[in-house]
């Protein structure tokens, strides 16, 4: 029996603001799970703290709403203990690029097979609109007493520098594209990162749905010219595989950086980078511990009639007094 979209929806009423970009992201996550027909109990959605972090409560899978900035370490532990789980981590830009930035980098180094979706709206919504680490220098969203006096971090570049092997960007109001990106991210063998541009209708009055949609820059016929565009339309090829020649790899990195820096009147979305040349952390562990996948740490039998099954004799022998 196939799973329907209803099977991925919990009965918890969402308390996001009307018009929030989070709804689109939530739908896209649920649709991608349905697309892949993943058993809900084999999926765990982890989150940090903030508006975005309420997401797991609305999804009918295991949901773990953790601490501010700490979603990735929690998710890492769960995944390493049971590599057979499908783990999706979600959180906002303050959560991931501010208080959690160290973990974002640390996790990038590992190339675990999990997916991190960053809801990026440039503000701290739940605490009423302070500047987030992705708000541009000098911008003054509506609840800021003064213009933002710090610069913005670029999540895509930071992801690349840290070692994320799949890097994409979606837009909260382009659900069909975002669903595909999240599915590709989940299916990617390794650590995948999806930044989602997510207008906050309550506190970010600069990067609004209208702004992304280009309502302020109409053509001669009066049609809005959207700022967001799809990299696929430019025939962007994000793939780096073992067959990609070294020179070509360098060129692709160059294009990646160029695209990651593009902002303002043209904002690329889609898959920026798909690097298949690195093995995953789980594979590295599996090379050392051959039972890692068949008997993962979380599912290994540790007792028999309440007696420990571990044989300590070799450990004792090693320290034995002769």
């Amino acid at each position: 029996m196939a799973y329907s979209i209803q099977d991925y929806k919990s009965d918890v009423h969402s308390n996001w603001c009307p018009g929030c970009g989070d709804f689109g992201i939530l739908n896209a996550v649920q649709m991608s799970l349905m697309d892949m027909q993943l058993d809900p109990h084999r999926v765990a959605v982890f989150s940090g703290v903030g508006c975005a972090a309420k997401t797991p409560h609305y999804i009918q899978t295991y949901g773990v709403h953790t601490l501010h900035g700490r979603v990735l370490p929690f998710a890492t532990g769960a995944k390493l203990a049971n590599p057979n789980l499908n783990i999706i981590a979600v959180g906002g830009d303050g959560d991931g690029m501010g208080i959690g930035a160290g973990h974002f980098v640390g996790t990038g180094r590992m190339n675990l097979d999990l997916t991190y979706v960053l809801f990026n709206n440039g503000v701290y919504g739940l605490t009423k609109g302070q500047a987030s680490p992705t708000l541009e220098l000098g911008q003054q969203t509506k609840s800021l007493p003064q213009p933002n006096s710090s610069g913005a971090v670029n999540p895509l570049l930071l992801a690349f520098a840290s070692g994320y092997s799949f890097i994409a960007r979606g837009y909260a109001y382009n659900i069909p594209q975002l669903k595909g990106l999240i599915r590709d991210a989940i299916e990617h063998p390794g650590l995948s990162f999806v930044e989602v541009l997510q207008p906050c209708p309550t506190y970010n009055n600069i990067n609004t749905r209208e702004w992304y949609g280009g309502a302020d820059r109409k053509d001669a016929e009066g049609t809005a010219r959207p700022r967001v565009y799809n990299l696929e339309d430019q025939d962007h090829d994000p793939l780096i595989s073992s067959e990609t020649a070294t020179e070509s790899r360098h060129a692709k990195v160059g294009v990646f950086i160029e695209k990651a820096l593009e902002w303002g009147d043209a904002i690329p979305t889609g898959i920026f980078l798909r690097n298949l040349t690195q093995n995953t952390y789980e594979e590295r562990i599996g090379e050392r511990i051959d039972t890692y996948r068949s008997e993962p740490p979380a599912r290994r039998q540790i007792e028999n009639n309440q007696q420990s099954v571990a044989d300590l004799e070799p450990l004792f022998e090693e320290l034995r007094v002769f």
Binding site: G77, K79, L85, G102, T291, P297
Partner: peptide, 29 residues
């Protein structure tokens, strides 16, 4: 068969305890 313990060196102690708790959620001691 054989048993194993997975030792993870994290980026800081916050990550260390969070990862241990995460592993506990999955059922590991």
């Amino acid at each position: 068969g054989k048993g194993s313990i997975l030792v993870l060196q994290t980026g800081d102690e916050i990550a260390a305890i969070c990862s241990a708790i995460g592993a506990g959620l999955s059922g590991a001691r």
